[in-house]
């Protein structure tokens, strides 16, 4: 606890383990990840949303059937993280990327373990790397890696 000439300051840690409940759509997607597969969900308009949500992002209408999509896809945009933060998926420099999986109409955000920034570009082909131990969580996807690596 420090005191300066005028005001008192003190460190404060806001900490809590929230309990998320998933519902049928997120819960099914996470179960798929746990089993090593990626699924999307189809909207009434025929688009495939990945990761799936209970509603069409465009108009709020309910989404329909689950659709298996590929675990490989194309980088739509990326950003190179020079210094990973403690809560990032990778401890070494990596790329965040928006990845459109083959069979999906929307891009999902995840990390790409590309080694160095010169190896990744928009349009790069990447594939999912699943975590060895999976529990039904978005981090069951450890990250993506370059397909030609």
């Amino acid at each position: 606890m420090a005191a300066d000439d005028e005001t008192l300051t003190a460190p404060y840690l806001l900490t809590y383990d929230y309990r998320r409940s998933c519902g049928p759509v997120i819960g099914r997607f996470l179960a798929g990840l746990r089993a090593g597969r990626i699924e999307g969900v189809r909207t009434a308009g025929g688009r495939v949303i990945v990761p799936p949500v209970e509603y069409d992002p465009d108009n709020g209408e309910p989404t329909g059937d689950f659709v298996a999509v590929s675990s490989t896809g194309t980088v739509v945009s990326w950003a190179w993280v020079v210094e990973p933060r403690p809560n990032h998926p990778l401890a070494r420099p990596f790329a965040w990327a928006l990845i459109k999986l083959d069979g999906a109409d929307t891009a999902m955000l995840h990390a790409v373990d590309a080694g160095r920034p010169s190896r990744i570009k928009t349009g790069a082909r990447v594939k999912a790397r699943f975590a060895a131990e999976r529990s039904g969580h978005i981090r069951d996807l450890a990250c993506f890696e370059l397909e030609d690596a």
Binding site: Y12, L13, Y18, P24
Partner: peptide, 18 residues
Amino acid sequence: IEIVKGFIAPVRLRYTVN
């Protein structure tokens, strides 16, 4: 396809209260 019901989401935020 037994769905995942939930997961724990830890939040740890450090502040300096004034």
